[in-house]
Design a protein around this nucleic acid. Structure first.
Lengths: 368, 368
DNA sequence: TTGTAGGCGTTATCAA
DNA sequence: TTGATAACGCCTACAA
């Protein structure tokens, strides 16, 4: 066997054709005779030839690589299975495409580092576009990418109408969840949501408020806590809330399942029963919720799909640069199990952006 | 302000110098007059000029990008804080260098996909080298990279002497841990280790056997279980072990803290007290171990450092291509807390490749 | 269907 | 210290 050969030129010589022909074969151009193609392919595989990426992108002005940018705000909660599923979905969608997905993680140590990555990876065109995992309000990268007219898609809603994003409708999902609790007859429903600077936190909180208002209630500030999307943070938040509230809540809406597990723990440690003393509704629909005690009622969102859809949207964008902005909402559904007080599980009741929610669980007798 | 300009050439024209000079400025070549440098830098920043990555790598034959390859075997346990720390360490080390670190995740769906990534990312020279997170025995990628003479470093020991790696000495660490349990007087010490095809699992198991043998014991097959490095897997493994064993163990060595938390749970669910009925020794030194009940004695390994050191080793390799193979072992130490039966915590007793272990905890009266 | 030739934006080697 | 001038390896009209 030959020593591995490295250039188009050499392959061309060996196959007795011109560089163009080899290039056409490599790129699947149909305008090549079967005979020539065969010969070229034989030589290519014999020489283990792989086209040089740099030369290719220099000539074609694209890399066929897309980046998944994980911003520092996310880094701290990366252990949440939520992100694993999201990333997994994105990676899978990348595999199913002609692009290669590469992940860029920012630590947030210094703005200088973020700058360097931005320049050397994005502006220098190492990637054709990026999918961004950051739901921080006013993340500066958004303005920057817009300014540079660089293709990107956000996973997580963004208010600016020209920004492409995929998400679920967090506000309406939260409304649905809290409405369900209200139907149980709970009167003091609290909320533990994420950081106040994340859009998802804000939207879920807004949905909570909305549900209460539709029922003619007002949210009690003593029952509202912004936490950090971690189990431990939620544990502390819940303990604190119980200490502080003059009258304890009879139900809690928790903005992530991971936090909900911390809440369940806190309630247990305080000797409170779920759902008899305090009902709990989570958010995300993680498998982990199934092994909680009692099993967690939650809002199921298609996390892997969200990641995959982000990648797909970016690819659409790259291939049709001047189509309309992409604002894609994926369906969610209420996943009724035990922690909300229902006696019968029900995963059939669903909601989506078009339909609206229709919860149809069998109601427990309200509070115990 | 000008519209953003894109090429060296234009900058050269605007600054009234040649392309070469601009290139020198961009690359920090000292052979440029202060005046010229100043002028060029002014134009560059005015035009927001960023050099084109493809052109650069084509001409210089390197990309200044390194890849962190996460193999499919790891993907399933990515939620383990162990990997987050490892990745975080690697990313930080990347930030501190002149390279950009990009993460490649494989899902293991199809060999075709792995192939594609290998060709398009590695062989096509999109990255200068890779750090690999895979400790599966005989991972085919190793042979492949060797065959292609592509620079890489493994995080996790590899038997082949030309393979570069960084790790801790898992075998000796496990020996130290089990020796500690033996000193407590436990007589039926079991082990739950990771998958049988991972080097770390094997090494930790070997260390366990070694410690027993040094004490004149033989391992009891009924007390040995290969699990999967997950909490849930270890929970099941422990429950199963308790069901199966004619006589229960009085101590367990568990090959990861995440698994240890599952073991603690299983013991609790069976009504067994830790450490009175069964002592437990973990592995990793995660913060999570501190919130377990009782707090977990474990083997502390410098996880972030391991990730960082992998990146540093790769960079050394890239800059001194023909230095000797890198086989770097980082220090570990026994982290004595409560679950092993000690009455007094002690994080001072340490061990490292040079020194060997010197456990100096205050011994409890053995078994309760 | 095939080949020719120019260019993609840098770096690197010389010579000045 | 500077500036020409070749590469670098591939793509892509355009012409044949």
């Amino acid at each position: 066997m030959e020593p591995d050969v490295t250039t188009l030129e050499e392959i061309a010589t060996l196959a007795g054709v011109s560089r163009s022909t080899v290039s056409r074969v490599v790129n699947g151009d149909p305008r090549v005779s079967a005979a020539a193609r065969e010969r070229v392919e034989a030589v290519i595989s014999e020489c283990h030839y792989v086209p040089n990426a740099a030369a290719r992108s220099l000539a074609s002005r694209r890399t066929r690589i897309i980046g998944l940018l994980i911003s520092p705000s996310v880094g701290v909660i990366l252990t949440d299975p939520f992100f694993n599923q999201l990333i997994e979905g994105a990676v899978r969608a990348g595999n199913d495409s002609d692009y290669i997905l590469t992940i860029l993680m920012e630590t947030g140590d210094s703005p200088h580092t973020a700058d360097r990555i931005y320049q050397r990876f994005i502006r220098s065109r190492h990637v054709d576009g990026v999918v961004i995992l950051s739901s921080v309000v006013e993340d500066p990268i958004v303005a920057r990418l817009q300014g540079d007219n660089f293709p990107f898609v956000l996973i997580g809603r963004h208010p600016h109408h020209t920004v492409n994003f995929v998400d679920i409708d967090n506000r309406s999902a939260a409304t649905t969840a809290v409405a369900h609790l209200l139907q149980h007859g709970y009167r003091r429903i609290g909320i533990i949501t994420g950081p106040a600077n994340m859009i998802a936190s804000i939207d879920r909180y807004a949905g909570y408020v909305n549900a209460l208002q539709e029922a003619g209630r007002v949210p009690d500030p003593a029952l509202t806590v912004y936490s950090d999307f971690t189990r431990r943070g939620a544990y502390r938040a819940m303990s604190h809330l119980l200490d502080r509230a003059s009258e304890p809540p009879d139900a809690m809406f928790v903005a992530s399942d991971t936090m909900a597990s911390g809440v369940l723990q806190a309630l247990r440690d305080q000797g409170l029963r779920v759902p008899e003393d305090v009902a709990v509704m989570g958010f995300d629909g993680l498998d982990e919720a199934l092994v909680s005690q009692p099993i967690l009622s939650t809002v199921f969102q298609p996390i892997r799909e969200l990641g995959a859809e982000g990648v797909r949207a970016l690819i659409e964008l790259l291939e049709h640069p001047d189509s309309a902005p992409i604002h894609r909402f994926l369906p969610y559904r209420l996943q009724i199990r035990r922690s909300c007080g229902c006696v019968e599980e029900n995963s059939a009741c669903s909601a989506n952006p078009e339909g609206g929610a229709a919860a149809s669980a069998s109601w427990a007798r309200g509070r115990a």
